[in-house]
Design a protein around this nucleic acid. Structure first.
Lengths: 123, 123
DNA sequence: CGGGTTAATGCGAGTGAGTTGCAATAGACC
DNA sequence: GGTCTATTGCAACTCACTCGCATTAACCCG
């Protein structure tokens, strides 16, 4: 366990946001400016391999990382970018259908479900 | 309507696959080698703006383009990459729940739903 | 059918988001 | 403290686009 990994882990555990690698790098560099972005990427990769963090995609931007202990689905408004965290139970109906009709086991976490939020749908 | 746009449209209409911009460029260039990749991108962008084609993301690779007349959801196996085309009706339960609980209108086409296909789930 | 105007094209360079090769360094273990 | 392996910093590279710009091709009009 190196110091860069320790700092990164602390930051990941200390707040429950969805942050890109660059954002995490900024936070890490606020404490230890010499930690390189590629180190962040490599640590995130390793932490993901170990099952501690996961990443998800919310649109055409960078991936966002968060703790694996709080996996959930995501609804993202295509218009305003609003993010809604969705309990997995919401996907259970789809999961059942996918399984019975295609033998497919869905994993609803990796890509967000796009659409329109309440505000943008009415506008 | 320029010749590059005509060729691209013919290729898009002539087969019903999901192809990346580079793959489309190869097919176009088989007929007219001077058509530049950036022209393909610009034409795809314009055709998308006009509602004739759409693009979707199936994973960590390039976007895939197909005709808007055949929009549907996608299940993609994280392990073997197998693609299953899913009728929109499969998402209607989720759409209803998303709407009643969050006022959110889902668009299940842009990002594939990842998971495990029948073969890879049992293996 | 020639001339003008606008939109589209080819090309190269640029951008965002990572990824990789490699030499230097820091941890972990004795 | 010494050794050995994993990690790091850095620069360079890749992939998938995106953009600026000078050139060219479509379309329109008389």
């Amino acid at each position: 366990m190196t110091s860069s990994r320790r700092i990164l882990l602390r930051i990941l555990f200390s707040s429950t946001g969805h942050r890109s690698a660059e954002e995490l790098a900024e936070e890490v560099q606020a404490e230890a400016p010499d930690i390189h972005l590629s180190t962040i990427y490599r640590n995130l990769e390793e932490l993901e391999r170990l099952g501690i963090v996961v990443h998800a995609h919310f649109g055409h931007g960078p991936a966002t990382y968060h703790l694996a202990t709080s996996v959930h689905g995501h609804f993202v408004c295509e218009e305003c970018g609003k993010l809604i965290e969705v309990p997995d139970s919401m996907f259970s109906g789809l999961a059942r259908e996918a399984s019975t009709r295609f033998g497919f086991t869905i994993d609803p976490h990796h890509f967000a479900m796009l659409g329109r939020c309440a505000d943008c749908a009415t506008a």
